[in-house]
Write a protein that binds this DNA or RNA. Sequence first.
RNA 1: GGUCCUGUGGCCGAGUGGUUAGGCAGAGCUCUGCAAAAGCUCGUACAGCGGUUCGACCCCGCUCGGGACCUCCA
Length: 486
Amino acid sequence: MAKAIRIYNTLSRTIEPFTPLHENRVGMYVCGPTVYNYLHLGNCRTFSSFDIVFRYLIYAGYQVRYVRNITDAGHLEGDRDEGDDKFAKRAKLEKLEPMEIVQKYTQYFHDVMQAFNCLPPSIEPTATGHIIEQIEMTKLLLEKGWAYEVDGTIYFDVEKYSKENNYGILSNRNLNDLLDGTRELSGQDEKQGRLDFALWIKAKPEHLMQWPSPWGNGFPGWHIECSAMSQKYLGNEFDIHGGGMDLIATHHTNEIAQNCACNGVSPARVWMHTNMLTVNGVRMSKSAGNGFLPNELFSGSHPLLEKGYSPMSVRFFMLQSHYRSTLDFSNEALQAAEKGYARLMNAIKLIDNLKTEGDNASYIQSLTDKCEAAMNEDFNTPIAISHLFEGVTFINNVNDGREKISASDKIALKKLFHDFVFDILGLKMESEQGNDKLDGLMQILLAQRADAKARKDFAASDLLRDQLLALGITIKDGKEGATYNL
RNA sequence: GGUCCUGUGGCCGAGUGGUUAGGCAGAGCUCUGCAAAAGCUCGUACAGCGGUUCGACCCCGCUCGGGACCUCCA
């Protein structure tokens, strides 16, 4: 059932049934961050989306090898194979070694991924760790005639490639359109074609990150690293390649060209692309200056925010939209998500204490089927969540005695919520339900308050409640006695 | 200019040719000493104009609006 997964493929622009190359195994490559600066929330959305894909494929019973790279070299400011190296520029700015920059922002990236409860990938290769592989691939492309050298720099010959291949296959553009959108070569350009891009770039003597190669000292172009690393760990052909939509036109297009030219086959069968996060309708990006840093969001220190939001509220917020839709960021939307997430978690806490009776099964199974059906259809998390909220209503009804649940359904209900909310959506309980001592203390206070209420000393009971509330502890009087929430 | 996406109720966001998305907010009610929590009920939603159809928010065309990519960005 869960294996009837269908995925939107950018190559075909349709939703297709997903069949892995090798039965029961899935190879997935996702373009990771360039660690020259703090990653912002838009980046987090992409990685959270693929975290869901990873988790659901595991749930569906696949053995998944998930490769997500770290770009720690070779990324120039402009993609015209000129301009500053991003790491070198940042290193100068912060007065650090380039590898200190890499270390710092890689660490930040990992911390944020952990905060968002994203599972670590199976392999997280770095560009600097695979210089040899990139040189080898560049050599092969030269040998096969798809690339040429100009004074220590190697370019990929796009126009030659286009004669036998569809260069714009992913972006759905033809070569002439692409050429129209590109500036004329100036007299200073070394490359032969306007669309040609560098595989290997000759380093100036002062360049901080450089490696020896058959063409002299240099560093790899941006696109070759993903081709070389995906091939190394997933083979010439693998199942899924993912990234943000902004990578389609250039990075992924060039990646396909490199792999096809080198191996004669397109690397990935399915290309998945996540849409952008927007702020007031405009794409969040570093250059637009509207990029939220994750910890600005958590603490609420960003000027556009009224308050801070917990990582799980934000994750839940993101999951309430489909990964291929743009998602707009606002205080109101965030607050709505925060409350919705709290409601979901509160219902889950109730499951264990539900009283069972009767034997009216099957409802939970149908709910499970609906959740799976939603996820099977291109990982439609918002629909899955809407079904989970049906379950929330059911749980609350059972808890209030308006509905009954059988013992077997209760087990199924618990499994459903644990599978979907925790394992697949990757949410987790944030509010620590305290330790034993705290709980014991609370029970004493609740007993005192119950006692005051029994004496109709409401002034005393309300005072206790207000004082606890001031500490962030909410008291709820139920039929079975009072409970508390931290 | 080229390529493409998009316009859903107060807000965020799914979806479908003919039966409810869902969350948040709002109103009323139930429960309660009061709250909180929970539940129930409610609200002229599908940019505009045409067309196809027995029937369209969902298909087609046009108009208007918003956005992305074609420079680096997930």
